[in-house]
Each structure stands twice: as C-alpha cells, then as structure tokens.
Amino acid sequence: MSLHPLTALTAACCAAVVTTAAASWQLSVAVALAAALLAARAGVAARVLAAAGVILAPLFLSLLVLHGLFFLEGHTVLAQWGPARVTAEGLGFALELGTRTAACVLLLLLFSFTVSVPDLVTALAARRIPPQLSFVLASTLILVPAMAGRLEKIRQAQEARGLVVGRGPLSRLAAARLQAVPLVLGLVEDAGLRAQALDARGFGLPGPRTSYRQLQDPPAQRIFRAAALLLAAAAVVLRLMTAWPTAVPS
C-alpha cells in the first residue's frame, strides 16, 4: 500500500474532524479502535499506544476529577462527599470528551508513526509550503524517535554509573526525573550545531527550490482527498446547523 503522505494526512485529519463533530462516544470508541487496529497492521501498535498512554492518562484523570466530581449541571447524583458530587451526567460528559480526544490523538499518532518523513517533506515542498515550515513539521515528527534514542543513551550513561532502574513506577519516575534535564539540554545543544550545518547547506537561502525525490500521486488518491475534505466540511456544517446539545458548558 503506497499512500501519498497528503492522503494519509487528509484521512487522519478528516476522521478526527468528523469524530469531533459527531460527538458520539460510540463513534469515538469505534474510530479509536480502528486506529489501534491499523497501527497493529502497520506494526507500530506498541509505540502508538505507549505514546497515547503518556498523553491521555493525565487528561483522563483531570476529566474525571473536573467533570466526574464537579459537573455543575449534573442532576442524577450517584454519590456525594461535601462539595464533590458524582453525577451520571458528569460521568457521561467525561466519557464523551475522553473518548473523542482519545480517537483524535490515536489518529494523529497513527499518522505520525507511519508517514515517511522524507515523502512528507517532498509533498509539502511541491505545494510551495515554505521549506522552513515543512522542516519544522518534519523535525517534530522525528523528534519522538530522536528523543527516545537520546533518552536511551542517557539512561545507559547513568546506569553505567550506578543508577538502578527498577520495574516499579516510582523507580521509573525517579529515573525519568534524572533524565529530563539532560535530555532537554542535549536537544538544545544539538539544535545549535545543526542550525549552523543547515545554514552552510543553503537552507536559509530565499528563492525557488527543486526536489530530487519524486512522489507518485495517483488520481484516485486526489479524488479521495477531495471527497474526505467535503465530508469533513459537511460534518462541521451539519453540526453547526443542528441544535447545540444542552450539556455544553461555556
């Protein structure tokens, strides 16, 4: 399967827009499952799910605390401790928001872990996107693997000097705290030298650029992209035209 990177990007973004517009937890769960399934087929399930866990766990926790316990519009009280009330509406709202976010996060992670960065840069350059912008985008996509590689090196260096990383979450958290500062400082330091190297290779030059790599963009994929964009636009319009749901807090 050779998807043009823009086709993959359009598919991921449109699916996220439609899921958000539909605001149905059943659809969100279905989309999240589909994304996880596709990730498994592409062989990146472990990385996608791990990254999603890091992003979503704190979010779910805060949703549960904010809406599960303190949802002002809630009527059906399930339990109460002082000002904190667990209401059915609050839990429902947390569920809806949580699954929707999970679906969007999984879709975008699936895209970023499967897209070929060089293909994406080529595709963006062909559409006259400023190269600096597409480089930033590409660097962001390779940042996660680059960070993982650097973290591994820092961990090895620390283990070689007596850091014992246990299996428990507390031990891992303590190790992560020791690695965070070196990681950020290392990335910043890398960036400085890389900027000089990019400058030397003409990256800052204004004017037209050419592309060595060539991409196939079959007509079927162009039609698919147009259709997906139309569908997403239609979903948004439909959403705006139908009545706002009553339970949206301002």
């Binding site: 960065v117 060089p118 840069v121 590409a138 660097s139 890389r194 003409g202 990256f203 050419t210 060595y212």
Partner: peptide, 18 residues
C-alpha cells in the same frame, strides 16, 4: 539533515536549496 531517507537525497539537499 536527518530529513532525507537515503544517501543520494542527502547529497541532493544542498542542491535543492539552491
């Protein structure tokens, strides 16, 4: 550059920019 997938494209990077 880290954003090119093979040696030939890495070599071409400086030419593309020009």
């Amino acid at each position: 550059s880290t954003v090119r997938s093979n040696v030939a494209e890495e070599l071409a990077f400086g030419l593309e920019n020009r």
